[in-house]
Design a protein around this nucleic acid. Sequence first.
DNA 1: CGTGAGTTTGAGTGCGCTCAAGCTTAGTGG
DNA 2: CCACTAAGCTTGAGCGCACTCAAACTCACG
Lengths: 255, 255
Amino acid sequence: MIQIKMEVVLLAKGIKPEDCGDCPIRHRAVCAYCESAELDTLERMKSYKTYEPGDPILWAGDPMRFVASVISGAAVLSQTMEDGRRQMVGLLLPSDFIGRPGRETANFDVTAATKLTLCRFERLPFEKLLKTTPSISRRLLDMTLDELDSARQWMLLLGRKTAREKLASLLAFLAQRQTQMSPEGERNPVPVDLYISREAMADYLGLTIETVSRQISALRKDGVIELTDSRHMLVPDLALLLDEAGYDSDGGMMD
Amino acid sequence: MIQIKMEVVLLAKGIKPEDCGDCPIRHRAVCAYCESAELDTLERMKSYKTYEPGDPILWAGDPMRFVASVISGAAVLSQTMEDGRRQMVGLLLPSDFIGRPGRETANFDVTAATKLTLCRFERLPFEKLLKTTPSISRRLLDMTLDELDSARQWMLLLGRKTAREKLASLLAFLAQRQTQMSPEGERNPVPVDLYISREAMADYLGLTIETVSRQISALRKDGVIELTDSRHMLVPDLALLLDEAGYDSDGGMMD
DNA sequence: CGTGAGTTTGAGTGCGCTCAAGCTTAGTGG
DNA sequence: CCACTAAGCTTGAGCGCACTCAAACTCACG
């Protein structure tokens, strides 16, 4: 919902907004700490690219020729074993950063999960800029530390939570990320765009699609969520959902 | 084995080696990129502290008054749910960094897993230094990116590997980390110090201690490893162990 | 020896997986 | 406009891996 709104705004500007000042992720992306002079430099280096759902962006082992910020849509970091078992290891939403300065080849597969717009920079020039521009490297350090914390929260989920808790955790995360971006305060019940397929959820949570489907049905029957269609739900009571997720009262998932 | 040797070296110097130039982790820790002038500054800020196995270093929620480098021994990052379920989310070995500049309270429990020596810096002065010393912030960024990659490898293990593969992965990781530090080339079979308890392994792998014990026994019966005692093993064929871990030929776990 | 922590092994259970069928929805062409 | 198709989702039946509960074993230490 929110997502779609952002895309519409972007399209209204003509897909290639040249002005970083108008960028919807200006204050949260890797450029967040930049001053206008530094922004000008980035402006000259950047180029936009859009992807369709399912498009590969990078395969593990590929040379990494660029780094990028997600402007709209969602991308997925994942890893696959020889026999096909797949684990998602990152869900990249608007303002998140793709790529690893200082590494020549990708360690993970990166795939567009939805229609996706990236703001891309060639890797080598970006790395040079990183060395001379503390406001970028400091921001990247902060973002990386945040992602590391997120990854560690996720490890608790993968290692110790039940299937029901895993689903509740994911749905709570999506609900929280979408309510905090919503400008017009809290509506009850909160509408949430699930945004990814059951298969993607299964890959994220270390489950099968059947178990994902069963647990969503169970949460629906127990009144924790309401489904409007298979990709959209209402959350009548976020506290209840968080409780099902197995968090102690303070919550504290992600960021 | 290697670990113990490093401790002995350190003790021989008198537990408090004041000279960073002699530090065993000088070239791999957060200070790795520092020049001698910068090292002098750090030298004036640092203080050593030792912990006994099991000692708590930080609890989640505590104010973080210091950051630190592991000099010798091992520390463990973990998270516990209300009902007692515990997941290890980081294993900190010599040269690894503890703490999160920019955050006032700890997100995870930190515990000494063995006898442990830390090189500590008060957080606020360290953060100031970080802002003015690119060689430290760049090193910290690189280390954090490496840790993020490790955490993501670990997520594949937690989400998709079988108990047997989990054990083989952990044992292979320990074997690799200890052979690559060993100066005198490859001996066959490779002796490996397991170094942590069955309980710690279980917390690491998202299993119970019984399952850990059973899978170790199974790997022993199948000739993949030999146990000398419950904390030490021999690895006759590292390639076989890696194969059991479910890696495609290139391996590539951690760092 | 006796004690206790750590580890191993056994028996039985249940959660999440596999295999399989049916349902829903959107897109396509007659 | 309505079959037809295919992809995504849901539901059911049965199984097996890892968990729980329980007991025995090992070894360091007093």
